[in-house]
Deep mutational scan, measured.
Amino acid sequence: MGFKLLSKLLVYLTASIMAIASPLAFSVDSSGEYPTVSEIPVGEVRLYQIADGVWSHIATQSFDGAVYPSNGLIVRDGDELLLIDTAWGAKNTAALLAEIEKQIGLPVTRAVSTHFHDDRVGGVDVLRAAGVATYASPSTRRLAEVEGNEIPTHSLEGLSSSGDAVRFGPVELFYPGAAHSTDNLIVYVPSASVLYGGCAIYELSRTSAGNVADADLAEWPTSIERIQQHYPEAQFVIPGHGLPGGLDLLKHTTNVVKAHTNRSVVE
């Protein structure tokens, strides 16, 4: 069995187990497998329904001669939608809004960016022009300005110390501490036991640490421990890039980060 097929099978099995364990909360999309990078042309966006009122959005972007996937989250909030992270750029984010209108038909009224990198804030200006209120932590807003990236308009308070959590509509926002970046936030959907790890969490097929220019490698494993301790009931975990899975993604990420750190020390 090929690795790609095995990865998709694991996603399907995880979703099936969740649907059985929580039949009222989960209505997993039966329309197909989780979209992969090879299936999404740059400039297009796919939506994948995880649970009743919960979707991931998947886009792709060219970077350094390669094409990478990027995940975000959409959560229903009454007759409105909360968006977590842009679709990595203005063109993708405009396509995301169009796809949401086509498939869901509810307005996106608020959006949260989970850290300051372009795959999370690139497209904020498109959201703002569409009347979406954009939010991020003060740290993310400051770092985005320093980096020359787009800056969300509103500040999220109460997320300055490791372990801080605040309720934001249908989700809980959690600051686990520094990891992929010093400002990275985690998003949890309690009604569906869905954990969105953003770039602080890796997919299972990833074996290298990737972009760690703004990471705190020493603190990252401790931050992941905080996530595990705060959300032990999480059933569906979405990484910032690639295929979702279960809580095993947290341990896998820790292993990859520690291996990278150990290699760096040896070198």
Rank of each mutant, 00 (worst) to 15 (best):
M1S: 03
F3T: 10
K4A: 04
K4L: 04
S7C: 06
K8D: 12
L9S: 08
L10P: 05
L10K: 06
V11A: 07
V11K: 05
V11N: 11
Y12V: 10
Y12K: 13
L13W: 09
T14A: 11
T14I: 12
S16L: 07
I17M: 06
I17K: 05
M18C: 05
A19T: 14
A19R: 06
A19G: 08
I20K: 07
I20G: 08
I20L: 10
L24H: 12
F26I: 06
F26V: 08
S27V: 07
S27H: 08
V28R: 10
V28K: 12
S30H: 15
S30C: 10
S31C: 14
S31T: 12
G32K: 10
G32L: 15
E33M: 14
P35G: 11
P35L: 08
V37W: 08
V37N: 07
S38T: 09
E39S: 11
P41V: 13
P41E: 12
V42I: 13
E44M: 10
V45W: 02
V45R: 02
V45F: 03
R46P: 04
R46W: 10
Y48E: 09
Q49W: 09
I50W: 14
A51E: 12
D52H: 05
D52P: 07
V54T: 11
V54C: 05
V54A: 12
W55D: 00
W55R: 01
W55Y: 07
W55K: 00
S56K: 09
H57K: 00
H57Q: 12
H57R: 02
I58W: 09
I58R: 09
I58L: 11
A59G: 11
T60W: 08
T60F: 06
Q61M: 08
Q61W: 13
Q61D: 05
Q61F: 10
F63D: 09
F63M: 05
G65Y: 06
A66H: 07
A66D: 09
V67N: 11
P69V: 08
P69T: 06
N71L: 02
G72R: 01
G72D: 03
G72N: 01
G72T: 02
G72S: 02
I74N: 03
V75K: 01
V75W: 02
R76Q: 07
R76T: 07
G78I: 06
G78K: 06
D79N: 06
E80Q: 11
E80M: 05
E80I: 15
E80S: 08
L81Y: 01
I84T: 04
I84M: 08
D85W: 00
T86H: 00
A87N: 03
A87Y: 00
A90S: 14
K91P: 09
K91R: 13
K91V: 14
N92A: 11
N92T: 15
T93C: 03
T93W: 00
A94Q: 14
L97D: 00
L97C: 03
A98Q: 13
E99C: 05
I100N: 02
I100R: 01
E101Q: 13
E101R: 11
K102R: 11
Q103I: 13
L106Y: 05
P107Q: 09
V108Q: 01
T109R: 13
R110W: 07
R110E: 08
A111F: 08
A111P: 03
V112T: 03
S113D: 04
T114Q: 00
T114G: 01
F116Q: 03
H117P: 00
D118C: 09
D119L: 00
R120T: 04
V121M: 04
G123Y: 03
V124F: 04
V124M: 14
D125N: 11
D125F: 08
D125A: 09
V126P: 03
L127T: 01
R128K: 10
R128S: 12
R128T: 07
A130W: 09
G131E: 07
G131K: 12
G131S: 09
V132T: 10
A133V: 11
A133H: 15
A133C: 09
T134V: 13
Y135N: 03
Y135M: 04
A136T: 04
A136D: 02
P138G: 14
P138M: 07
T140K: 04
T140I: 03
R142K: 15
R142D: 15
R142C: 12
L143C: 07
A144N: 04
A144H: 04
A144P: 04
E145C: 13
V146Y: 14
N149L: 13
P152W: 02
S155H: 15
S160C: 11
S160M: 15
S160L: 11
S161V: 14
S161T: 08
G163W: 09
G163C: 03
A165I: 06
A165W: 10
R167D: 07
F168E: 02
F168W: 08
G169S: 04
G169Q: 03
P170Y: 04
P170C: 04
P170D: 06
P170N: 07
P170K: 07
V171H: 00
E172A: 05
E172W: 10
E172H: 06
E172G: 03
L173A: 04
F174P: 02
Y175T: 02
Y175A: 04
P176R: 01
G177H: 00
G177N: 00
A178R: 08
A179G: 10
H180F: 00
S181Q: 00
T182N: 15
N184A: 01
L185Y: 02
L185M: 09
I186H: 04
V187W: 01
V187T: 06
P190Y: 04
P190M: 05
A192Q: 07
S193N: 08
S193G: 09
S193P: 03
V194Y: 01
L195Q: 00
Y196W: 05
G198H: 00
G198Q: 03
A200T: 10
A200W: 02
I201H: 03
Y202T: 05
Y202P: 03
E203C: 04
L204Y: 14
L204G: 09
S205I: 11
S205V: 11
R206M: 06
R206A: 07
T207W: 08
T207A: 10
S208E: 10
S208D: 10
A209F: 10
G210D: 08
G210S: 05
N211V: 13
N211G: 08
A213R: 10
D214P: 05
D214E: 10
A215Y: 04
A215D: 05
A215C: 04
L217T: 07
W220E: 01
T222L: 14
S223K: 03
I224Q: 01
E225T: 06
E225M: 11
R226F: 13
I227T: 14
Q228A: 15
Q229R: 11
H230C: 05
H230T: 08
Y231V: 08
P232T: 06
E233T: 13
E233S: 13
A234Y: 04
I238N: 02
G240A: 03
G240E: 03
H241L: 01
H241S: 01
G242D: 03
G242I: 02
G242F: 03
L243V: 06
L243R: 07
P244M: 07
G245I: 01
G245H: 05
G246L: 04
L247H: 08
D248E: 08
L249G: 01
L250G: 01
L250W: 01
K251A: 08
K251Q: 15
K251R: 11
H252R: 04
H252I: 03
H252P: 01
T253Q: 01
N255G: 11
N255V: 14
V256H: 02
V257G: 01
V257C: 09
V257M: 12
K258T: 11
A259V: 09
H260A: 08
T261K: 05
N262K: 09
R263L: 10
R263F: 13
R263G: 09
S264C: 05
V265H: 13
V266C: 02
E267Y: 05
